[in-house]
Structures are given as C-alpha cells and as structure tokens.
C-alpha cells in the first residue's frame, strides 16, 4: 500500500489528463464512480485496473497509473460500459484515447495488442484488404505465440476458407498512400460530435 500526496501532481500529468479528456470528449468529473461500467465489463479478468479505476485515476490527475495499465489494451471496445453509463461518460472512447497517449509515450503494456493492431494495418497497407491467414501468421511470428490457433489452420485450408493466394485490389497503392498520408499527419481527430447535425 502506498501514501499518495495529491498536492504534488506534476503539471505535465495534468496536461496529459486534459489531452485524454479532450480526445475522448469526456468530462471525467461527470463520473460518480458507481461502477456500472466495471460491473458489466466482460474483459475484467485480463485487466489490472477496473475501467472505473481508470476514470478514477484520471479524476485524481494520476496519469502514469493509467498509461502503464493493461486495461485499455485488454478492452475489447464492445461499448457496453458506455451504453449503460448513467452519467453518459464515454468510457470506451476514454480507453482509445489512453491507448493513443500511452503509445505516444512509448508505453505498450500489452505488447500483443499493439503488435496485432500494427500487423493488421500493415496487412491492409500491403493488399488494400485484410488477409486473415497472413495476418495470423505474421502476428504469431512477431508476438512469439507461434502455435496460437494453428490447429484450426488445416481445417480452414481444407474447407477452402484460406489459401495460398492473397486478396489484392488493383488500387492498393491508393490505399497505402491514404494510410501513409493520414498517419503522417498523425491524426488525432476528435470523436464525431454526438447528436450534431450538418450545419
């Protein structure tokens, strides 16, 4: 157990919390810690902080705890927390924003999640579409989980679900250019404003 002095939160941490709040378009003060998000979260068994605790640390300005937490990386983005929150706090968007902030800070608490995401985008960049068998293969190689789901591969192969051939589209250069352009501008576009109408 530890003693926390809340009067000495570094200014940088406060700024980081504000940036996460702005990206997720969430006011963390709205949360009254009822725990309904964590009560219904299907992924808690892989988490080191309850989703509620992620919000709590952000309320306290303790951003390091959140950036180093596995929770946002284990989150399946199913959105059930946000849908049921009595205070309309978008927990799901907060998890995404924390992941972005952590990655920017060079922290990837669940390396596999980062690798999967990375290989997925590479796959799309190369072919224009996602080729499941190559994605799985490359992911297994990079993550070190060499045998994961391999027992299903022969079945898929035999049933014609996967093959040697890749699915490419003719305009895959356009897609790769698009991905490069967007990522170079390092997009942190805001969440789409909710309920906004075209004006």
């Amino acid at each position: 157990m530890k003693i926390v002095d809340l009067t000495v939160i570094p200014a940088d941490d406060r700024t980081a919390v504000a940036a996460i709040a702005a990206e997720a378009q969430v006011n963390f003060k709205d949360c009254y810690q009822c725990g309904k998000c964590s009560a219904g979260c299907p992924m808690v068994q892989g988490m080191d902080l309850m989703p509620r605790e992620v919000i709590r640390y952000l309320q306290l300005g303790k951003v390091q705890e959140v950036l180093n937490s596995k929770t946002p990386w284990v989150c399946a983005q199913c959105g059930v927390c946000t849908a049921r929150c009595p205070q309309n706090v978008d927990i799901c968007a907060t998890m995404r924003a924390v992941r972005h902030a952590a990655k920017d800070a060079g922290i990837t608490p669940v390396r596999e999640a980062d690798v999967f995401e990375d290989e997925f985008i590479k796959n799309v960049r190369a072919h224009g579409r996602s080729n499941e068998q190559y994605l799985a293969m490359k992911y297994n190689l990079r993550s070190g989980h060499l045998m994961q789901d391999v027992d299903s591969a022969p079945a898929m192969f035999a049933r014609g679900m996967i093959g040697i051939a890749t699915h490419n589209i003719d305009s895959r250069d356009e897609v790769s250019a698009l991905i490069d352009r967007v990522l170079q501008n390092n997009g942190a576009a805001k969440e789409a404003p909710k309920g906004g109408d075209a004006s």
Binding site: C34, G35, C37, A39, G40, P86
Partner: peptide, 22 residues
C-alpha cells in the same frame, strides 16, 4: 456492496446479477 448493477439475466431459474464491489 458499493456499486450499481450492470445486468440481470436469467440462467435456469436463477437471476444472475452482475455488479461491482467498488
């Protein structure tokens, strides 16, 4: 138990309540 219940569902003749003890 300090927390709101997120879901009540039926399994057999039991009602399963999912909550958090915050």
């Amino acid at each position: 138990l300090r927390g709101r219940v997120s879901k009540i569902y039926k399994e057999g003749d039991r009602l399963v309540c999912l909550g958090e003890d915050t």
